[in-house]
């Protein structure tokens, strides 16, 4: 999986490409921990090119969102592909996490205090 980070003011956008499975999820977890340690508090997961997510991937999404919230931050998920959307629906993640149709919408939702 490839992770490309960009910043828009105080918002970090992580564009995820490929498969987020048990092999790739530690990479995302480490990236999130590093962002948190570096002071990032608002993170958008841009899932436009994310083709697959397993339980391990969901776990990293949830723990990342939880850690950021505990630190006073927020997360938003954007542009779920059909395969990822299906897993989010099955697991009810779309009910407890903020999911938006596009990265622009997700970024806008985190703008401001």
């Amino acid at each position: 999986m490839e992770i490309t980070a960009s910043n828009q003011n105080d918002i970090t956008v992580l564009a995820l490409q490929g498969r987020l499975d048990g092999i790739a999820s530690p990479q995302l977890e480490q990236r999130l921990d590093a962002l948190l340690a570096g002071g990032a508090r608002k993170v958008v997961f841009d899932c436009t090119a994310l083709t697959y997510v397993s339980s391990a991937g969901l776990r990293v999404f949830l723990s990342g969102a939880k850690k950021l919230k505990s630190a006073g931050g927020r997360t938003a998920f954007a542009a779920l592909t059909p395969a990822v959307h299906e897993v989010f629906e099955l697991s009810g993640f779309h009910e407890v996490l903020a999911v938006h149709p596009s990265a622009a919408d997700a970024t806008a939702s985190l703008a401001g205090p």
Binding site: D21, G22, Y52, S54, A56
Partner: peptide, 14 residues
């Protein structure tokens, strides 16, 4: 799963 020994999705356990 939480020890990183297996992973799952709606289709299979790996």
């Amino acid at each position: 799963f939480h020890l990183g020994r297996i992973d799952t999705d709606p289709a299979v356990l790996t």
